[in-house]
Simulated scan of single mutants.
Amino acid sequence: MKKPYANFAFFLLGIMGLALGISLTILSDLGTSPFDAVLVGLSIKVGLTVGSWEVLLAVLMIGCNSLLTRHRPELLGLVTAVITGVGIDLWLFLLGSVVTPEIWSAKAICFIFGLVLIGAGTATYLLTNFAPIPIDRLTLIIKDLTRTDLFVSRTLIYLGFLIVAFLVGGPIGIGTVLTVCFGGLILNFFMKPIGKALNATLHTES
């Protein structure tokens, strides 16, 4: 028997872990994922917070995903994006004056920890089967269309956003390259063990 409240709790845990990971990569100053680099670049150039741009781009991507799947727009994905955006802004506010790595090794630790959290958090909330963030829904759509795995689909999407991030002046660095190379691999790595753990936790014998 499924445990709905526990399921929602793990959904929130995954989202907040994802948001924390994104915030740590931003604060590492080594470069973020291409998508997050777009958010930061728009925040610097146009204004508004990073989390606000998460929501605004989510609206655009919901429309794109609807066209690709030829289904109605997945409006619940906007709710997930709002929670994620709030989480990113919250973590940046709480950690902005605390996490200020200056030497390279500290920046590397901050970035690596953030990248792992992004993969684990994304896997956790996706496996609870709530509506995914539009970019993660796009990852799943590309995976199905190309008949590949999450590593390939995530990498293709990151390459596209890398171009956009460059155009808007987002924080592109060694961390961006590492995310393109390993972000999808890390997500794919966490899917199976976290899936098994959630299945054991969220279901009991009727």
Rank of each mutant, 00 (worst) to 15 (best):
L57V: 04
L140Q: 14
I44N: 14
G85R: 03
I62E: 00
F93Q: 14
G184R: 09
L78Q: 02
T128W: 09
P134R: 00
A81T: 06
L56H: 04
L126I: 08
W91I: 06
I133Y: 15
F8H: 11
I15K: 08
L78K: 02
S23F: 00
G21Y: 01
L138E: 01
L187W: 01
G169R: 07
F8C: 09
S28Y: 09
C110R: 07
V59A: 11
A197E: 11
A6W: 14
P101F: 06
L48S: 14
I118M: 10
P73R: 01
V152I: 15
V82S: 10
K143T: 13
I142A: 05
K107M: 10
S43H: 05
L12H: 04
I133Q: 15
L39W: 09
I44L: 09
I103F: 12
G170H: 03
A123F: 00
K3E: 03
V168F: 05
L30R: 12
V164R: 03
A19Y: 07
L162V: 02
D29P: 06
L67E: 07
T146N: 09
V50Y: 03
L150W: 02
I103E: 11
G85T: 03
I44W: 12
G21A: 03
I88Y: 01
P73C: 10
V180A: 02
R154S: 13
V98W: 12
L57Y: 00
K143F: 05
T80K: 07
D36H: 04
S66F: 02
K3Q: 12
L156E: 02
L68P: 04
